[in-house]
Amino acid sequence: MSRTILPAIRLPWNSLGLVAVLLILVLFFSSQSEYFFSGVTFRTLANQIPTLTVIAVGTTFVLLIAGIDLSVGSVMALCAAVMGVLMTDADWPLFAAIAASLLTGLACGAASGFVSARWAIPSFVVTLGMLEMARGGAYLVTDSQTRYLGAAVGRIGEPLAGLGVSPALLAALAVVALAQFVLVRTVFGRYMIAIGSNEEAARLSGLHTVRWKALVFALAGLLAALGGVFQLGYLQTADPNAGIGLELSAIAAVVIGGTSLSGGRGSVINSFLGVLIIAVMQTGLAQLGISEPGKRIITGAVIVAAVLFDQYREPLARRLSRWRPDAGAEQ
């Protein structure tokens, strides 16, 4: 009885440490800069995160099955490039171009996932190859030139009147909620955890691991494409150099969120908190005008500190959850 409700209530326990880190960061920056704690800052910040958010969701799933996807930044650039070129050179309507872009991402992800799973090649290697191919594709599609799209895509990324947040942010939040639901409440979610915990055992108990793994990478590709659509709406520009190093930001956000690099353990909500922590850091450090080397050193240190914190959070949460039945039984 108590075991069935466990996954649902374990969540806030694990997230609490991240929320605390986030609060500390916000309060710290607010105390340092008189401009930080304002509606404008937070709205600006909110409209900057949709791309990293959805890509971090895809990366969470990939890390859950003990894989890694290095290609998401390049795939995002390729998908945005496809969409941009279709809209400027071929005059495609917005939604058709979005569909083409999403299909491109899905295909890239499915290809890496299938090759990696079918021939048991480490996903690190396969997605490294995809990183190069997609980047080359982005240069090829755009002729290595930045395409300016202007207002045609602006409504994706521009804040909605009266709400202050962009459609992209709302969509990204919906993706987070849906992905968390899939992870915690569906068979597919259980399969991912089973594959990530012990792939061989999962296969022996009848899971078609190749198919499921390919599906996870395909999803990561699809989400990278969605990130590309958001990025295009935000920048109004299809840039063949977009998203260089984005995979590392995504992995950092996911790892800050406590998802294990060796698979089997993770949470989409916590990855989202990781994204917020990175975004608050970037905004705060920029507003303080910290020098570039300083920013990098501080950001790197916070990533390591957050993961260290995670090491202590785990046994602490376990100890607390062990007390719970006693506390609940008699009082």
Partner: peptide, 12 residues
Amino acid sequence: SDLAQQVALVEQ
């Protein structure tokens, strides 16, 4: 070439 980061900086 990090366009997105520079746009974010201007907004900040």
